[in-house]
Amino acid sequence: MYANFDLLVPDELDQALTMIGGAKTAEDCAPLGGGTNLVVDMRASGKAPAALVSVARLPGLRGITIAEGTVTLGAATTVSDLLRDPRMLEVGAAMVDGSRVFAGQMVRNTATVAGNICCGSPAADLVPPLLALGASVTLRSAGGERTVPLDEYFTGYKTSVRRPDELLTSISWPVPAENSASRFYKLGRRKGDAITMVGVSVLVGMKDGVCSEVRIALGAVGPCVFRAKTAETVLKGKAPSPELVEQAARKAMEEAAPIDDVRATGAYRKQQVQVLVRRLLNQTIESLS
């Protein structure tokens, strides 16, 4: 490895919060989760924060709890943990979709859910499902903790409201209401080990024949993952029809602002947003009726 840094391995969360508590910027001190992004970035750039606090194995930070209508993931829960818990299909099917196309086995065994959020990549595969599920994140510092809707967490390309002295300690979302379903689809060059060209996740809840809940989240088509809220309002509170689905898909395409890069052109990505939003909405709605 070519980057230099100090590695701190606390035994308890309180120690970790003290260690990171003095950080004024992310260059002073940063949390290290599974390291599957950070170690690669440090090796490529030769740059690293002055200190890293290893949080992936802190006691109490790994695990999936479903209680009182809420699903809670400890920050250090790995992608493989999601795949190995059969309850996830019930309470967050889109997360299972995202986990199955997430890198390769060794990375899934190591990468944490919090790490996927904190890296802030617009192509992160767990973030669109989490946005579709209506997730919030808990940020904790030595001084206290706060809960932020994931929808308000990202502020731009790899930037967020998390302060350098805060750790993301858990992720939670309400258990989806009855008669609702969620999905995620990743458009990539290959099925495995690929970086997402376009990621789309939808959640639809049906009640009395109308779409009582609609969330559509788009990945890799903007500076951060975001919800296509204009598209959501097209369907929300209405009885679904092919025309409305088509309209929502078009709105989502208009909301997407992708760039050209090595993986795909922006124009192709925009077109695929329309195709995939239409497809996922149709599949989700059909699965409910």
Partner: peptide, 10 residues
């Protein structure tokens, strides 16, 4: 795990 992504200290 990928040992190339795992810091020995962890």
């Amino acid at each position: 795990v990928d040992s190339c992504l795992t810091l020995t200290g962890t």
